[in-house]
Design a protein around this nucleic acid. Structure first.
Lengths: 235, 235
DNA sequence: TAGATTGTTAATCGATTAACAATC
DNA sequence: TAGATTGTTAATCGATTAACAATC
């Protein structure tokens, strides 16, 4: 009994409504499944590649072979975005590409703040691919006084004290967390209180957020563990 | 084969595990799944946290609440690693932590090469968390002559021409790809021919590999697209 | 013991794959 | 048209959740 109540008390202090590991529950309102959604960027890349190589149409069988999945899966995925192919011909590369840009919102600008200007944070700030998908890291924050004022990709590293002003002023919805794990929940709370709706979490901390906020966990160490386990056990 | 090489791997994992724990319940490792495997690192973190805070046992209900999943799920996951809890008490934090270290191979050293010493590659090379899980990035390669000889985290950036020698000499099994996407398949082929068995792919290229090679796709742009789509659609 | 918690079978839910009709 | 390919329903597979017996 003692152990149980202590555990519960401890838990209450650090967590109430944890984000789901799979993120599944949050997405259940959408008619598109998470596995499908995660495949869509790959379809997008394939359309670009085939278009570049002069193909006007691509069949579900060809896409399926590229990705090592079933061709029925491909047709269902595409149908779930609302795009319609041409029987006997396939899917129009340019049309479907543009449809995906629209469906995924790739052409809409997304302003984000990044907290934690360490190695990973700086690398993400400089990552060239994000701009293609509308992501703009507008402000970078760090709590280390020695870093304040330094520039990363032409953006000045700001002190945490200016977080509130910047996020509110620009009504920023996206935050990228690359700071130390033990500070993650506090910063997350602050960001949520300022109106942030999406947290891309690179720390290995589990974050408590309200139901209307999304957390996407990008736990690199956990990914490596999964990969290495598979390899080691196969030997 | 790409992502699906991971799933296919389970079939072979099963026989390996079965031999190791054949004296235990049949139920244990026959049903280990990718979703379960991906949750295990989180259980590991929770065990560490609770141990640090003086708890000798944790119940599946507490773990489940932490992660926002069902407590039956937790018990099934734990059973699938072969660890056995104590009815009426819970799971021993230290024991289960050590069991996971063993099961996941966290204490085994894994030597890796990293190809592409750009911002992301350098950040990963300096990432402090990996060492905790046995990952050591032994060599860094880049094809830019201006980068050759520079040091990242005390490791010299080597030319691509020395890839063969280094990988073969140390029988390196792991490769981390952070170079430009359009070179990824070529480098991948080269690495596979040199004996690499695991590819941690940070490019947005979809890689074809033989059945005995694992590819783990860490496509950050695709992850962001997924996240942003969910946020935009929820508005 | 009584009661809390694990371990396990059964039921449900959801994603993938198979089959085939619809289409041009 | 004939044949290729899409769109969609049905079947299968697998993961999650519910229920409850086993345990200490």
């Amino acid at each position: 009994m003692g152990t149980y109540t202590l555990e519960e008390a401890f838990l209450e202090n650090i967590s109430k409504h944890r984000a789901k590991i799979s993120n599944k529950e949050k997405y259940s309102l959408d008619h598109i499944s998470l596995p499908t959604l995660r495949r869509l960027p790959y379809y997008y890349n394939i359309m670009i590649t085939f278009e570049k190589n002069g193909f006007k149409y691509v069949s579900s069988a060809v896409i399926a072979k590229q990705l090592g999945i079933d061709d029925t899966q491909v047709r269902k995925d595409i149908a779930s975005t609302g795009y319609i192919g041409k029987p006997k011909v396939g899917f129009n590369t340019v049309e479907f590409k543009e449809h995906l840009e629209d469906f995924l919102g790739l052409k809409e600008k997304k302003e984000a703040v990044l907290v934690g200007a360490g190695n990973l944070g700086q690398a993400l700030t400089r990552f060239p691919g994000f701009a293609n998908y509308g992501l703009n890291i507008s402000f970078i924050f760090d709590q280390d006084p020695n870093k304040i004022g330094q520039k990363v990709n032409n953006k000045e590293i700001l002190p945490m004290t200016s977080l509130e002003l910047k996020v509110k002023k620009k009504s920023i919805q996206y935050a990228i967390l690359t700071m130390r794990s033990d500070e993650a929940q506090n910063i997350c709370n602050k960001l949520v209180s300022l109106g942030v709706k999406a947290i891309w979490n690179f720390t290995d901390s589990y974050l408590e957020v309200p139901d209307d906020v999304f957390v996407w966990n990008e736990n690199l160490a956990a990914s490596f563990i999964t990969l290495s386990h598979l390899v080691e056990r196969k030997k």
